[in-house]
């Protein structure tokens, strides 16, 4: 009986998958942007801490510090390209 049940649930699952896929193209692109933003944030974590340290010692480091800190932001910008590709 259990086998029969498994068969039917498998069938049901397959049917739903066909009706609405787990990830649409847009959804996958959104996920890509989200993950890359997370990665950028993680990368900026260390750079930001180091930049604040340098700024605390020397005010002139403010501009270079900001530039360095936002560099990983390019990850997100490249990921946004994926959105335009799938649209």
């Amino acid at each position: 009986m259990i086998e029969a049940l498994a068969d039917t649930t498998g069938l049901v699952l397959q049917e739903t998958v066909e009706e609405s896929p787990f990830l649409t193209d847009i959804g996958a692109a959104a996920l890509a942007v989200g993950l890359s933003a997370l990665a950028a944030g993680y990368a900026e974590r260390g750079i930001g801490a180091a930049a604040v340290g340098a700024i605390a010692e020397d005010d002139d480091m403010f501009v270079p510090g900001i530039v360095m800190t936002v560099l990983p932001e390019t990850l997100v910008i490249f990921a946004i390209v994926a959105i335009f590709l799938v649209q």
Binding site: R45, G46, I47, G48, A49, A50, A51, V52, G53, A54, A56, E57, D58, M61
Partner: peptide
């Protein structure tokens, strides 16, 4: 976990080293 303390310290130390 997640504290960027070494980066901060090294940032400051390197700046002092340069002076």
């Amino acid at each position: 976990l997640g504290a960027s303390n070494p980066e901060y310290v090294v940032g400051r130390v390197r700046s002092r080293r340069a002076s």
